[in-house]
Amino acid sequence: MRPGAARLEPWVLMSPALALLAAVTALPMLYVVWLSLQQRALFRAAQFTGFDHYFRLAGDGRFWNALGNTLYFALVSVAMELALGLAIALLLARAGRARALIYGAVLVPWAIPTVVSARMWEWMYQPELGVLSFLAGRPVNWLGDAALALHAAIAMDVWKSTPFVALLLLAGLQAIPRELVHAAALDGAGAWTTFRRVTLPLLAPVILVAAVFRSIDALRVFDAIYVLTGGGPANATETLSIYAYRVLFQMLDFGYGSALAVVVLAITGMAALAYARLLRGGIE
């Protein structure tokens, strides 16, 4: 075979994947930026308006509300998922023979479609008939109360996503050499000191990866809130993805909606950059 052809070979093999990626992810990503610079109602002619939509964002209270909700949702849910996930991972690491059974149970929330788990929680959150109101001893309007609704969505997300965090941290725990833990014990360190001084520092890179992964996911939250509250009551649970969806497909304003989508892209992009940094920082 000629050397030129050999050099082309890998690119030929990669071309189907690269072509599909370009068509459904890379090009649409550029196209959405272009859309955001236009005045464009669906089914009407487009008009170039430059950065108008981005200036409009600055004065749009509903946008700032959605941004705040998104950041609050991501911060609280990821923090809880990490704390709970770490506790569960430490338990699972000691599970011994029951391990396979327990992994199976823990994988259930991960495997259930988000929309379905939101429906399950919606039923449990029913003010009159829901099991959570029964447990609370009185009817609570979990999803209809502006102060409670976002927290109700967070609780569902924590239930759904903690297994992923726990399993990731468990893999990290199992990669820690046993000798290190034994050595600490031989030196007379108690369980807590060993955890603080040996396990936690060695686990830190994996915790960071889990945090970034979950943040990227939480910052674009859509499915759970769409089903649970639709963004209500009174926009109390409206996140950026929900707001963008409503502007795009309910108000049919593709220009401004695309600008909101670009903001979501920029925010998750920053989280992704953090992840790239971590990887280069040398995680095995």
């Binding site: 459904v24 992810t25 090009l27 649409p28 990503m29 196209y31 959405v32 859309l35 990227i216 910052l219 674009r220 859509f222 950026l240 993805s241 963008a244 969806y245 795009l248 593709f254 909606g257 695309s258 989508a261 670009v262 979501v264 892209l265 998750t268 992009g269 989280a271 992704a272 992840y275």
Partner: peptide, 13 residues
């Protein structure tokens, strides 16, 4: 890591 909502309007068109 691309958020789905970021490309939903272009993909629709």
């Amino acid at each position: 890591m691309l958020p789905p909502v970021a490309t939903v309007s272009p993909l629709f068109l």
